[in-house]
């Protein structure tokens, strides 16, 4: 069975209603095309995990597809708040969502623990902070050697992780360069891994030997989607479309404007539109 399949098929086969899913990317390489395909297919009751939910999860939440969101920073980076997520939390519109909130350090450690096959992550954190009072999943352990009290959070183990990358080779090895974020950990922590890429090349000969982050046998499916991170960026291919992030602040502020935007740009679109959107960036 080929790993190289259309995005529509990869989402249909790997993401189920009720799944725990991570669409990871740290400002760079956010898998917007994969997220839009999941929204188009109406995958629902999802537990969405991501350190920085940003506008892609704002779209899932605004469409009523999220049951629970696990996160550490719910903002539109550099712009402001996530208005659809706020509407869900403050007004239960279009449905109530459960939030499980952590710090970045906790989420990063929890992904790493997931990739490492550990049940939990241990780190020095949350000292004096209020999050442990509102998130029962933040606990503490005592170091058996020094007696120091350390924070503990459960490992993150998504049913499926979606990421975007620059390149895959014909075997299906995946390469990322630039800001690498937490994608390697999020992929290795998951049961299934779907990767969208800008291009598929015969091999990685002549490229820097440390750029491959995932060998082909760790990846479930690969889909070529040019521009698939837009309005996020792909280092070496196109820049971040900051104007779209600024525009989102207005679109997401109004329920009807949001619904129309989703109709025009997601529900009635295909993965092919992403290549067009990144032209000139």
């Amino acid at each position: 069975m080929s790993k190289f399949i259309p995005l529509e098929q990869a989402v249909r086969e790997n993401l189920n209603d009720g799944d725990t899913v991570a669409f990871e990317g740290f400002t760079h390489l956010i898998p917007h095309a994969a997220g839009h395909e999941a929204i188009r297919q109406g995958k629902k009751d999802l537990t969405l995990i991501r350190m920085t939910p940003d506008i892609l999860y704002d779209q899932f939440i605004g469409m009523g597809l999220a049951k629970r969101v696990v996160f550490s920073y719910a903002g539109n980076p550099g712009v402001g708040l996530l208005r659809r997520m706020r509407d869900a939390i403050e007004n239960q519109y279009p449905r109530a969502i459960e939030t499980v909130e952590h710090s970045h350090a906790a989420m990063a450690n929890a992904y790493e623990a997931g990739a490492a096959g550990l049940p939990c992550a241990i780190f020095r954190g949350y000292k004096g902070a209020d999050l442990p009072k509102v998130n029962p999943n933040i606990k503490s352990v005592v170091c058996p050697f020094t007696g120091e009290e350390l924070a503990a959070v459960p490992a993150i183990r998504p049913d499926v992780t979606f990421i975007h990358a620059q390149k895959a080779n014909e075997k299906g090895d995946v390469l990322i360069e630039g800001i690498v974020g937490v994608q390697k950990e999020a992929a290795l922590a998951a049961r299934r891994v779907v990767v969208t890429v800008e291009e598929i090349v015969p091999d990685f000969k002549g490229l820097h030997p440390n750029l491959t982050i995932l060998p082909h046998w760790t990846v479930t499916a690969i889909c070529q989607v040019r521009g698939g991170a837009h309005p996020s960026y792909t280092h070496g291919y196109y820049e971040r479309d900051n104007a779209t992030y600024l525009e989102w602040d207005k679109v997401s502020a109004d329920r009807e404007l949001f619904a129309k935007w989703m109709d025009d740009n997601v529900l009635n679109a295909t993965p092919a539109v992403f290549a067009e959107r990144t032209k000139g960036l």
């Binding site: 920085t52 996160f71 550490s72 920073y73 719910a74 903002g75 708040l81 996530l82 997520m85 706020r86 939390i89 403050e90 909130e101 710090s103 970045h104 350090a105 780190f123 020095r124 954190g125 949350y126 000292k127 004096g128 902070a129 999050l131």
Partner: peptide, 14 residues
């Protein structure tokens, strides 16, 4: 008002 949250701040602060 739901603000963005802490991000890295809880551990940066300590």
């Amino acid at each position: 008002v739901r603000l963005p949250g802490g991000g890295g701040a809880p551990e940066i602060a300590s």
